[in-house]
Amino acid sequence: MRNSTRLLAAVSLAVMSLAGGAAMAEDTLTFGTDATYPPFESLDASGKFQGFDIEVVQALCDHMKITCTFVNQDFDGIIPALQAKKFDAIISSMSITPERLKKVDFTSKVYNTPPAVAVPKDSKITEPTNAGLAGKTIGAQSSTTHANYATVHMKDAELKLYPTPDEYKLDIASGRLDAVIDDVVVLSEWTKSESGSCCKVLGTLPVDKEINGEGAGIAVRKGDDALREKLNEAIKTIRTDGTYKKIQDKYFDFDVYGG
């Protein structure tokens, strides 16, 4: 839940009111995403969007019989870009939190996984707590729930913020950080990779629902109820018909939807 700002394609969503409900008049939806967050959203070698979130949205659009497209947007500016109508919705591992609900509306959750802390394999840190991290330097992506969590619950550590996870990963691998905080799936997948061989997941953290929210969902503009309801219906359908599980099993060996 999070490089440089990319050129954004502005696609408007036209909605027309009909007796008994609302129907989308356009057959394309554009989603903003910060594609620096594998395995949820990233770019492959050819520049194509990939990841769990991307495949879930493609399944939702298939169900709604519309075309979905994606644009890359830095996480810091992703909500303002949505509000400016640079795209129709956000799919970027964005947690549904009380603070964000003041600015945007959300669908029901797409997944729900806890935060965690990773440290170098030879670290003397033994527990992912304020006491265990006291006096240490911990890295996090800016404008994320994980950065907020560290600010509140790890007050005795020095927090260093980065525009993307790629930068904090480089710094901890180079010995410039003592620990990093992020989603447990993101950290687990990274530490299994060659680039993350420096480090290990120290442990997960107790969820603070005020900070971490109720899971990650799709954000839409305030009052865009027609789109939100369409997406919610599609989420319910792919959860019921097995499509969600098929996508999940491609990426994870556990239930990423959570309780």
Rank of each mutant, 00 (worst) to 15 (best):
S46G: 00
H153E: 05
D156Q: 14
T97I: 05
T30K: 11
T204L: 01
G77R: 14
D27Y: 10
N130W: 03
D44T: 05
Y244N: 04
H153D: 05
Q73G: 03
D241R: 04
I211A: 04
Y111T: 07
L133T: 10
K230G: 11
P80N: 00
F75V: 11
I238Q: 11
Q248W: 09
P98V: 06
F52W: 06
D76S: 15
F87H: 04
S108W: 06
A81Q: 07
D241S: 06
D105C: 09
T5E: 15
R6A: 15
Y37R: 15
T237K: 15
K109E: 07
L177K: 02
T33K: 07
I96D: 02
D44C: 03
I238S: 12
P163D: 11
M94T: 15
I96W: 02
G47V: 00
V11E: 09
A89L: 13
A45N: 13
I218N: 12
V207C: 01
V220D: 07
V207L: 10
H153I: 11
T107I: 03
A84I: 07
A25Y: 06
D249T: 14
E41Y: 07
E194H: 04
E26K: 14
A147D: 01
E229K: 15
M94P: 10
F52N: 03
E233Y: 09
N148C: 05
D76W: 12
K222V: 12
M154K: 08
K169M: 13
H153C: 08
S143I: 02
P98E: 04
V71G: 06
F70M: 05
K200L: 03
E55T: 05
A157C: 10
T145N: 10
K250D: 11
D62T: 13
Y162G: 05
T36P: 03
D156I: 14
S93P: 09
D122V: 11
C199F: 08
V117R: 03
L227N: 06
D225W: 11
